[in-house]
């Protein structure tokens, strides 16, 4: 167990390191002079050179990379060109919103997907199965920004139940939660469509196994058998897809935050790209990558928690 854990942690750290190199390399071969962007087209060569020196852009690449990583490890992500403040401060302000959105989106995704997937599996080949699979096919086909606009038109403009966008801040938790309802639903409907299909086929696979027959012969109710015997055994493929979907969810928040005018990391990334704010973009891309790598690390840990056979095999 501890050997397995040590290997996973080593893999996790190595992956993050590789990601940091890739992110840094990509950002530093991009065309566009940050000094020109900040100072404007009518700035003098001398002024731009001075700014480049102040930002450390004229140092050798390796030295800049080490400075960036070293700073990031201390929590210093550099100064944003366009906002003129520390990037870490920009991120800290917006992180709670994006994290809340990601967590609520993922939670709703998993709940919807499990209910839809298990219900479809239980009604395999019958009308309920077809209806759920048709619904999930729609969910897969529909782009998230278009679904978001439909939701806004219906629930905000027509019915006026929920705000169409914007974020009132955390001081009023009820208003904050109401502002997150539509974005969460938009994210989850699309994500759960895929996950419901995975859940259904994983459950059908498990339902063929002998121990399900044993449970039935023991007189257990179908719902009990589904949730307590079939689902746990179907979890490994489900958790794998959840880990992969986390990447989709993070990119999904970029789109969603722009559609709903939510001041989160996705919106910050969008603005920073528009401003050629390389330092901020670099920090955010690294952060998003780190979130995805962490999610997949947690999935690896989850496998072992789910299946005692893996604990024995890799101890």
């Amino acid at each position: 167990m501890s050997y397995f854990l040590a290997r996973r942690i080593a893999g996790f750290v190595l992956t993050l390191w590789a990601v940091s190199i890739v992110v840094f390399a990509v950002m530093n071969v991009l065309p566009g002079d940050p000094a020109l962007t900040i100072l404007g087209l009518d700035s003098t060569d001398e002024a731009r050179a001075a700014l480049r020196e102040r930002l450390g852009l004229d140092a050798p690449v390796v030295q800049r990379y080490l400075a960036w990583v070293g700073g990031a490890l201390r929590g210093d992500l550099g100064q944003s060109y366009s906002f003129g403040v520390a990037v870490s401060g920009l991120i800290a302000e917006r992180l709670p919103l994006t994290v809340s959105l990601a967590i609520s989106g993922m939670t709703l995704t998993v709940c919807l997907a499990l209910v839809m997937g298990l219900t479809a599996a239980a009604r395999h080949g019958r009308a309920g199965d077809w209806a759920i699979m048709l619904f999930s096919q729609l969910g897969i086909a529909v782009p998230v920004f278009w679904l978001s606009m439909l939701l806004v038109l219906l629930f905000a403009v027509k019915l006026r139940w929920l705000p169409p966008g914007g974020f009132p801040g955390w001081s009023d938790p009820v208003a904050a939660a109401r502002a997150l309802v539509l974005p969460t639903v938009a994210l989850a409907l699309v994500q759960s469509a895929v996950l419901a299909r995975v859940t259904r086929s994983a459950a059908l696979e498990v339902m063929r196994l002998d121990f399900v027959r044993t449970a039935r012969a023991s007189g257990f109710a179908p719902g009990h058998i589904m949730w307590r015997h079939v689902l746990p055994n179907a979890l490994v493929p489900i958790v794998t897809i959840v880990g992969l979907q986390f990447a989709g969810l993070v990119t999904g928040t970029i789109v969603i935050e722009n559609v709903f005018y939510l001041p989160g990391l996705g919106r910050l990334l969008f603005q920073s790209i528009a401003n050629r704010d390389l330092v901020t973009v670099q920090a955010l891309v690294m952060l998003f990558a780190a979130i995805v790598v962490t999610a997949n690390f947690l999935v690896d840990i989850a496998y072992v928690l789910i299946d005692p056979r893996l604990r024995a095999g890799r101890a």
């Binding site: 002998d210 012969a217 007189g219 746990p232």
Partner: peptide
């Protein structure tokens, strides 16, 4: 209502008949 209480059944393949988790 009757399974487990009136009649119970065991099967051929004991390897796969128990929930592995």
């Amino acid at each position: 209502r009757h399974r487990a209480r009136t009649m119970a059944m065991i099967f051929q393949e004991p390897m796969a008949a128990l929930n592995p988790l």
